[in-house]
Nucleic acid binder design. Sequence first.
DNA 1: GACGTCTTGTAGCAAGTGCTACGATTAGCT
DNA 2: AGCTAATCGTAGCACTTGCTACAAGACGTC
Lengths: 177, 177
Amino acid sequence: MSKESLLPLLARHVLAHGLGQASLRPLAKAAGTSDRMLIYHFGTKEALLADLLGFVAGTYAQALDAALGGERAGTRGQALARILAHAQSEAMQPFMALWWEIVAGAARGLTGFALAAQAIMSELLGWLETQMPERDPDPRGGARYLLALIEGTLMLDAVGHGETAREGLLASGLSPA
Amino acid sequence: MSKESLLPLLARHVLAHGLGQASLRPLAKAAGTSDRMLIYHFGTKEALLADLLGFVAGTYAQALDAALGGERAGTRGQALARILAHAQSEAMQPFMALWWEIVAGAARGLTGFALAAQAIMSELLGWLETQMPERDPDPRGGARYLLALIEGTLMLDAVGHGETAREGLLASGLSPA
DNA sequence: GACGTCTTGTAGCAAGTGCTACGATTAGCT
DNA sequence: AGCTAATCGTAGCACTTGCTACAAGACGTC
């Protein structure tokens, strides 16, 4: 079992159970090894977590490319709707739960978390920029504006204020009225 | 030492060190008691956490009222700037770090976390509604729109994408150009 | 003073934590 | 074949976790 072949299994466990419960022995069982081997491969739990978060960020990038093909949106509102539908889909729910744990770690200054979070946000921002309407007057600023709005919406979703977010988007003038 | 007199001390410790490291013995030491007493008063760590998060939510409500007095903003942009300045202030930094942990817990479905998060968001939303400009065409929707934008901005701040958020706000048309 | 309830200290338990020591197996290279 | 280095299993260590058992003081009520 190589390091690389372990990462997907570890990620699966973390997506399902969260980072808080991610201790070596359960992780090892989920990956079909022993804690001894995890330490052997990664050296330290901290290093394991850093590698794991990097892997998750990479997986997210792939999922984004796969799910949201290339053609440009007609309006900012369409780009917004498209990405919200993706993030709110059933399949992305485990990732979203993990995402807020990554944000919390980044806010506490944990380096591995901050790096993964920045990578994921950069990925999403890059995708948003390619999605901006063809003759948008300010694609760069617009993409960043949408990014803030999207993340705020997803956060409100996560804490049970989804309806609040929906009304906010309606009032933003972006939604297809 | 009553339950109520313990809560501020416990909150201080959690704000400084985070929820992840919040185990009974360190908490007890920070509050000047023993783990035995914490269990005696709260019954369970889970119950302690729920009480503690409720207390933090209440404290946040007070801080909001105290720091951001009553007079209405002239424009949506002013309301936005005002609350962002508050949330990004040095004094609020420990609370913001704790906030993302609360969000992460809520996203994982932990009841105490979800309740506290909803209370805090409702408080902020209520305050935003009182701050909307006098002749705003849609104060209800506008407040919700601002809420999403604010939380997205704060999240990007937390993960080191503060500059991204700033550019997004500039492109929103809300900032005093 | 007697009684029962509330409060608190000291010890400790069973389980889980990250990590290490040591030995056995395997693989690759000469 | 013989040697070296990578890979892995078994035990275990020192420590922390949430929580409990047991007993002693504090305190108001009769």
